[in-house]
């Protein structure tokens, strides 16, 4: 069956295909926890999937750079250490991922390639088929529209679904996506004009509902040219709780720390775990000297990385996709998230 790049599938039939796939491959999808929180988990039945969510509180980067991950394990044979890489990850399907997270993934793709390719990241990445859900109903914290993070994407997905009511509009972004449809017998029909038109309308409506809150340009200029008043950084530094939440939930933040966990029998594991540039321990040197001892310097660092031209040029993208998670997660309520800081910088000279 030849499938066109934009196809239309009844929702139930798409999910049946997913169910067939699930028999052979791990499928990770959004599920609702008891209290109402959304989390992505491996599922055993497509009925577990919830569509009643916009974006999950914790970013999908955890499926590519887990919060804690083994770098290698070791044991001793005599006095000789023997180190071993972790086992290869298995193939899986990530279903229901939102555009902003996918854009975050694209950001990480760029970061983890280059002169030093991060094999641990790429193994997971290559084993994962992404089926994303374009957004039609933004949250009031969403500002992807300001950061080219959504609400839908042109590329970067294997498959992108748009909910048209009874059917999904399926956009095929890669050969792997096409293979998924074929292998699991998802009955696709070419999208008709009216389908495309409906989608166009939905997109338009979504765009209109979206209140752009992060006018990045001025902030980028101020930061790039180091024109932000020191007093404003002082103020923001004093407000920050240094909880690290903003970086932990950010789909673009990748920093990690490394530590060893030895066991009594001489075996052990070296892990990496998420770290945060908002922590004082992040830059403290062995001598006790700390170049970013003050929260102010750390807040400044975070925004330099997110919004300076130097980084945008290097990464091809600002370090923000507009998912809005840093708004919800911040203890310094509505003061230090990206839209808030962008606004503060815009009003500052």
């Amino acid at each position: 069956m030849q499938v066109s790049a934009k196809a239309i599938v009844p929702k139930t039939l798409f999910l049946e295909g997913l169910a067939r796939c699930m028999k052979k491959t791990e499928v990770i999808a959004p599920v609702k926890m008891k209290g109402g929180d959304i989390t992505f988990e491996p599922i055993s039945n497509v009925r577990q999937i919830t569509f009643d969510y916009v974006n999950d509180h914790d970013p999908l980067k955890r499926f590519f750079i887990p919060a804690r991950e083994e770098l290698f394990s070791y044991h001793f044979s005599g006095n000789k250490p023997v180190a071993k890489s972790p086992p290869q990850p298995k193939p899986r399907v990530l279903f229901g991922i939102r555009s902003c997270d996918l854009q975050g993934l694209a950001h990480m793709d760029g970061f983890f390639q280059g002169a030093f390719e991060d094999q641990l990241y790429w193994q997971r990445r290559q084993q994962t088929l992404t089926i994303s859900l374009a957004c039609t109903e933004p949250l009031d914290t969403c500002f992807c529209i300001c950061c080219n993070g959504g609400p839908w994407l042109e590329h970067g997905f294997d498959l992108q679904l748009t909910d048209l009511g009874e059917t999904f509009l399926v956009e095929i972004g890669s050969a792997a996506g096409r293979r998924f449809l074929e292998e699991w017998h998802v009955p696709c029909q070419s999208a008709k004009r009216k389908d495309l038109q409906l989608r166009q309308e939905l997109m338009q409506k979504c765009d209109e509902k979206m209140i752009p809150t992060a006018y990045l340009a001025k902030a980028c200029i101020q930061i790039t040219n180091n024109r932000v008043r020191e007093e404003l950084w002082d103020e923001m530094g004093a407000e920050c709780f240094s909880c690290g939440g903003c970086t932990h939930v950010c789909p673009c933040c990748t920093c990690f720390d490394v530590y060893d966990c030895p066991q009594e029998d001489g075996q052990g594991t070296r892990y990496r775990c998420w770290d945060s540039c908002q922590y004082a321990g992040f830059t403290r040197e062995a001598s006790g000297h700390n170049p970013r001892a003050k929260a102010k310097e750390r807040v400044k660092r975070r925004f330099y990385h997110k919004l300076s031209y130097a980084y945008i040029q290097q990464d091809g993208h600002p370090g923000c996709v507009g998912c809005g998670r840093c708004i919800t997660v911040c203890q310094a309520f509505n003061q230090l998230d990206v839209p808030a800081v962008v606004k503060r910088l815009r009003r500052d000279g």
Partner: peptide, 24 residues
């Protein structure tokens, strides 16, 4: 320049000053 370093390959972010990574 010396900074607290972890990965040495430009990934962990610890050694970054501006957009330069001291380790790379």
């Amino acid at each position: 320049l010396e900074r607290y370093m972890k990965c040495g390959v430009g990934k962990c972010g610890h050694c970054a000053i501006g957009h330069k990574y001291i380790c790379v």
